[in-house]
């Protein structure tokens, strides 16, 4: 397949810039249960795309397909216009798709720098790096400090602090910072605030908004409708493995989304 396959238009999106990540007609079944039945998704630069749906609607399966954790039965995924096939989560990550999970994101006893660079540590140049495998700690610290500062996580003063000494919101902020750093192209956040209190969730929400403002495309899965309505530019609704609507919080209400989610209302044009 040629490397420049065009993303088939999903209709109604003409005139906009090319989506950073998109998927077309994704099908996935587990045995006789069809989890995804021809799902399309597009996320553009500088937008937060909300993803909602009841349990079993296919949100997690869709995310797994997009991030290499599952392999779709059929359908195509395009990253920056080029078709991609991921054999495993690491491949998706190397391609620039980062996932932030509800929990389990960070190693609590390691410091912030080590967490940001976990799995992609920088080695020193020259003999020390090549033969003694010495890490370039000063550079990692400096860049980690810049990253944290750039994201406006002002409450973190000491980059050498163990993550377990941070609050839950700060910890999740570190997880988000790690995902957003290092030239990642798309962020996928799976219930990033579900384990946090209200104030701490607010911290993470501000972080998401500031990342969006820096141009990062974000797919945000959340059960927290009000927060989603505040943060998301568009909200895509899944029901029983199908997309039943894409709403703009500016022009639609939460009630409409809930009606689509539960099937109380049928999507316009279907």
């Amino acid at each position: 397949m040629s490397g420049t396959a065009e993303v088939p238009s999903s209709g109604g999106e003409q005139g906009r810039a090319q989506p950073v990540l998109s998927a077309r007609d994704i099908w996935k079944s587990y045995g006789r249960v069809a989890a995804l039945r021809g799902v399309d998704i597009d996320v553009y630069r500088g937008e937060v795309l909300g993803l909602v749906g009841d349990n079993g609607a296919g949100k997690s399966t869709l995310i797994k397909c997009l991030t290499g954790a599952e392999y779709p039965d059929s359908g195509s995924i395009f990253l920056e216009g080029r078709e991609v096939v991921f054999h495993g989560p690491l491949a998706a990550r190397q391609a620039g798709i980062e996932v932030v999970h509800q929990t389990l994101g960070v190693a609590p006893q390691l410091d912030i720098t080590s967490n940001l660079y976990l799995g992609r540590e920088l080695r020193r140049k020259g003999v020390l790096g090549a033969w003694a495998r010495m890490l370039d700690v000063p550079t990692m610290r400096r860049r980690a400090a810049e990253e944290v500062k750039g994201l406006g996580i002002a409450t973190i003063q000491d980059i050498g602090q163990a993550v377990e000494t941070l609050s839950g919101g700060q910890r999740q902020a570190v997880a988000v910072a790690r995902a957003a750093a290092f030239g990642s192209k798309v962020l996928v956040m799976d219930e990033p605030t579900a384990a946090l209190g209200v104030r701490e969730a607010g911290q993470v929400h501000r972080l998401i908004a500031s990342l969006r403002d820096r141009g990062m495309p974000i797919i945000l899965i959340s059960h927290n409708m009000p927060a989603l309505w505040e943060l998301a530019d568009r909200v895509q609704i899944l029901r029983l493995g199908r997309v039943v609507g894409v709403l703009a919080p500016d022009s639609s209400t939460m009630e409409e989304a809930v009606a689509l989610m539960t099937g109380a209302r049928v999507a316009p044009g279907s």
Binding site: R93, L110, G119
Partner: peptide
């Protein structure tokens, strides 16, 4: 990292 939180280490690659 592995001793601290296996799952976090795995997710970090």
């Amino acid at each position: 990292a592995v001793g601290d939180d296996v799952e976090a280490a795995r997710l970090a690659g």
